[in-house]
Design a protein around this nucleic acid. Structure first.
Lengths: 288, 288
DNA sequence: GGGGATCGATACCGCACGGGTATCGATCCC
DNA sequence: GGGATCGATACCCGTGCGGTATCGATCCCC
C-alpha cells in the first residue's frame, strides 16, 4: 500500500504510449508477461483500471490519461533530480558550469551579447550551449538536461517555469530573393497566408510526427531556408533573423503578425548563483 | 545503471532530513544497516558522495543538498501522479469534484462569491474546500492533494504554477479594541513595528518550527486573535479581514504596508474543465 | 464456419535483491 | 582507558521481479 515506484511509472508510460503490451515490453527490454503483471499490480494499487484491453486493442481510460500526463511529469522530475545531482557533483570537484538551452539558429546576437555580458561578471562560470529543435527546450529544462533556457513566446510554453522577459520583436516574412513582394516595404498576414505556390512549411511536433495538411515538411532551419531559396515555401520569423539570412533570401516586415517575445526561463526553486547571474546579465543587457 | 527508484529517494530524504541513519531508519520503519547500504548504492549510482559521515555527525555535501531539494520535488510529483489518478478514477465512476486549497480564515467573502458564481455555471462540479495552515497551499497543489488554490502574494510563492490575479487590497493593523491607536484613521508601518508591548507574533515555518526572535507564538488565526484580544500582540492583515473581526478587536488602515494580491493558482498542464471553470468564474467575478 | 494468427493473461520457476540480525570499528566523552 | 554512540560490514533469509511455456479470446481470411 505504499508509494508507487518509478519503474512502474516507466512501464505504464511505455504501454500507454505504444498501446501494445508486446511492443512496450520490447522497448523496455523485457518479456511481455511480467509487464502485464506489473501493470495490473499498479492498477490494483491505484484502485482503478488504467487500460481497457481486449485481445485486439488497448485503450487508455480517463484515469489512465491522467496518469500518463502525471507520470511523464514525475519521471521528468526524477530524471532531473538525478542529472542535477550529477552536475552539482561535477561542479564541486571540477569546473562548474550551467547549460543554456536555446532554439538552434534563433536569437543570434542577443545570445552572443548576453554571454559576453555574463562572462564579464566576476564569478562567471562556463556556459554550455544546448541547441534544441523546435519546442525541445521545455523538456530539457524540465528533465534537468538544461539549467536555463531562452524561450520564444507565444510558441513555447512557460508553464511551470520562472521567467524574465528579455526582448519583444515584430516579425518578417522570409521570401526567395527576387520574389515580387520583396519590393514592398511591408506586407499583411492575409497576403502571406495566401501566397500562391509559397505555403508555410510544416514542422514536426514534440512527438516527431508532422501535422496533417498541405505544405512542404522541414525539420530544421537549414532545410527551411533551402525550401525558401528553392521557391517552394515562405516563412514568418522574428525580425532578428535578418542578420543571418543567406543571399538568396529576402525579408519583408509583417506589422500585423503577432510579436515574438524572447524570455529567459529556469526551473523554480533551482536558482543557483550561476543561473541567477546569467539571468541578471541577460536582463541588464536587454533593458539598458 | 538505469533510473533511480522513488524508494531510494524516500530513503535519502529521510536521512538528509534527520542527518542520522538510526533515526531515519526508525522513521522509515526499517533497520539501519539496509538503509546505509541503500544510500551508498545510491551514491555509487550517481557517482558522487551525498553525505559526509563520521561516526559522530552526518552532513550533506553540495550534491546532497541539490538532491534533497530535487528529490522532494520529484517525490511530490510522484505522489501527485498517484493522487490525481485516484481522483480521476473517482470522478469517472461517481461524483466528480475539484479540491480548492485556501488559507483558513482568509478571503472570506471573495471565496463565497466565487463559489456561488461557479456553482451557477451549467457544468459545475462539486468543490471541496481544503483549509490550509500558513503556506501549506503550495505543497497541497504540488503533491496533488489540491487541484487549485488561492494564494496571497507576496507571502506565498507562485513558483511553478499557472496563476490569475484576482484582487489586490491594502492592509490594516489589527489591535485590541480600545487601544489608543484605534482612534486614528490610519497609522504607518514604522509605528506598528515599534508598538510597545504589542509585538508581531511568530508563525511556524513549513518545517513546523518557529523562527527565532522575540514575540509570542501562534499556530492559527484563533490563537492569533486570542493573543491580540489579550493585548499581547498586534497583526498586519488584508483589509478584507475586517468583516470577520470579533468584537474585542479593531482594525486601522496602514497605507504604507505592502498590498496583498490574492491569486488563483493551479498546476501547469492540468487545467481540467472543472479547474478552468473555477478559474473563469473567479476571474469574471473579480473583474466585473 | 473452422483454422491460424495475434495478443494479453496465467502458471510456474529461479535468482537477485531488499531487509533482518549480529558484529565490527571509529570517534568522542567522562 | 573504558564505555557509549553510530555508521559500516558480514552474513542469512524470504520476497518479488523477470524469465519461459502455455492458455484463452478475438479477429481475419479462405
Amino acid at each position: 500500500m505504499d508509494g508507487v515506484e518509478t519503474r512502474e511509472l516507466r512501464y505504464f508510460v511505455a504501454v500507454a504510449e505504444e498501446l501494445h503490451f508486446g511492443r512496450a515490453a520490447q522497448r523496455l527490454g523485457m518479456a511481455q508477461p511480467p509487464l502485464s503483471r506489473a501493470i495490473s499490480l499498479l492498477e490494483r494499487r491505484l484502485g482503478t483500471t488504467l487500460l481497457e484491453r481486449t485481445s485486439r486493442a488497448v485503450t487508455l481510460t480517463g484515469a489512465g490519461s491522467v496518469l500518463l500526463r502525471e507520470a511523464r511529469a514525475a519521471l521528468d522530475a526524477v530524471e532531473a533530480a538525478e542529472r542535477r545531482t550529477r552536475r552539482a557533483a561535477l561542479a564541486e570537484t571540477g569546473r562548474p558550469g550551467v547549460v543554456l538551452a536555446t532554439k538552434a539558429g534563433a536569437s543570434g546576437e542577443l545570445l552572443a551579447k548576453m554571454l559576453d555580458a555574463y562572462a564579464a561578471e566576476p564569478d562567471a562560470v562556463a556556459v554550455d550551449l544546448l541547441l534544441c529543435g523546435i519546442g525541445e527546450q521545455e523538456r530539457m529544462l524540465r528533465d534537468g538536461r538544461a539549467d536555463v533556457a531562452l524561450l520564444h513566446l507565444p510558441f513555447d510554453s512557460t508553464a511551470g517555469f520562472d521567467t524574465e522577459e528579455l526582448v519583444t520583436e515584430s516579425q518578417v516574412v522570409v521570401l526567395p530573393a527576387g520574389h515580387p513582394l520583396t519590393t514592398r516595404d511591408q506586407v499583411r498576414m492575409s497576403e502571406v497566408t495566401a501566397l500562391p505556390g509559397l505555403p508555410l512549411p510544416r514542422w514536426p511536433g514534440p512527438d516527431g510526427t508532422y501535422p496533417d495538411g498541405p505544405g512542404p515538411q522541414a525539420r530544421d532551419h537549414a532545410q527551411l531556408y533551402q525550401l525558401i531559396a528553392l521557391g517552394r515555401a515562405c516563412w514568418i520569423a522574428p525580425e532578428s533573423c535578418r542578420a543571418q539570412l543567406r543571399e538568396e533570401l529576402a525579408a519583408v516586415p509583417v506589422p500585423d503578425a503577432p510579436t515574438v517575445t524572447t524570455v529567459i526561463a529556469w526551473p523554480p526553486h533551482s536558482r543557483s548563483r550561476a543561473v541567477a547571474g546569467l539571468v541578471r546579465a541577460a536582463v541588464r543587457h536587454c533593458t539598458s
